[in-house]
């Protein structure tokens, strides 16, 4: 069983003054992995600039464009089509699940293997004693993570326009409102504080089921369960990541996964708009 997805990504950037030279990098191509096929890519820009495929510092494919002429605005449109296998997030032997034992997780080889997804970053750093979800040593890691997923979902109210890409957990815990990035960062901060490796995932969400996602790129979390592997949790919707989640990249936090980075040479500010659409043909 599989789904055939067509994803369109549109972005528009406008500048106060003409920019003389500009580069952009898009981290928006669906990842090729066990459940996702290699996507077919179509990409155009209003300037007709040639684009190239490259890889970012963590090996994820990116689209890059460079313009050497002056421009005041530019539009981009990307279309990706791929098939996605139907995913059952619980497709593993439940015997393998382990209880939550902080001492075992704290052992050096384990910490060393995952230290990049265990250390805190400015966006996932929790203040000591912050009033957040605490793991129950009496149950398993999976139960704890699912409870954490629900806790984040209930604790934050999905509201656009309150937070921004640099919002810290400290600010978030006061606001208690945010978008998918914020949900993911809070989940990650708490999981890491309990010794569970957790990584930020960016991608697309097929909205057919009425999920929160806001026609933008979506964000969720992958947490590592010993003996089982990485499992996807979507705290924005209090579900496990599955067939509707089309993954693009993962990283330590949002900064490793920013979909669009632009470097322009010129004075003045800029405005940008993005739009995402995910369609499925069964």
């Amino acid at each position: 069983m599989s789904e055939l997805y067509t994803i369109t990504y549109q972005a528009e950037n406008a500048y106060d003054y003409p920019v003389v030279e500009s580069s952009w990098q898009f981290l928006i191509i669906p990842e090729e992995n066990a459940s996702q096929s290699k996507p077919r890519i179509r990409f155009t820009s209003s300037e007709g600039s040639p684009w190239e495929l490259s890889e970012n510092g963590f090996g994820f494919p990116v689209i890059r464009i460079r313009n050497r002429h002056s421009l005041e605005s530019i539009r981009f449109e990307a279309e990706f089509s791929l098939t996605k296998q139907v995913v059952n997030p619980f497709d593993f032997d439940p015997e393998l699940l382990e209880p939550y034992e902080p001492q075992r997780l704290g052992q050096l080889p384990f910490r060393m293997r995952f230290d990049n997804f265990l250390k805190s970053t400015p966006l996932t750093c929790l203040a000591a004693g912050a009033p957040v979800f605490s793991f129950d040593p009496g149950t398993g890691i999976l139960e704890n993570l699912q409870a954490l997923n629900a806790w984040v979902f209930n604790d934050l109210k999905y509201t656009a326009g309150i937070t921004h890409v640099d919002t810290t957990l400290e600010e978030l815990l006061v606001l208690r409102k945010g978008v998918c990035q914020d949900f993911a960062h809070l989940f990650i901060g708490i999981a890491r504080a309990h010794g569970i490796p957790a990584r930020y995932v960016s991608g697309y969400l097929h909205q057919g089921m009425g999920f929160f996602g806001d026609a933008q790129m979506h964000a969720w979390v992958e947490a590592f369960l010993p003996e089982v592997g990485w499992l996807g949790f979507d705290p924005t919707n209090n579900i496990m990541a599955a067939t509707n989640h089309i993954k693009v990249a993962h990283g330590r936090d949002y900064n490793d996964c920013a979909p669009l980075k632009g470097v322009v040479y010129g004075p003045g500010g800029n405005r940008s708009r993005h739009q995402v659409q995910v369609a499925s043909q069964q």
Partner: peptide
């Protein structure tokens, strides 16, 4: 822009 990718390659 892109220097690190060139380095990685």
């Amino acid at each position: 822009p892109g220097l690190f990718s060139a380095y990685r390659k």
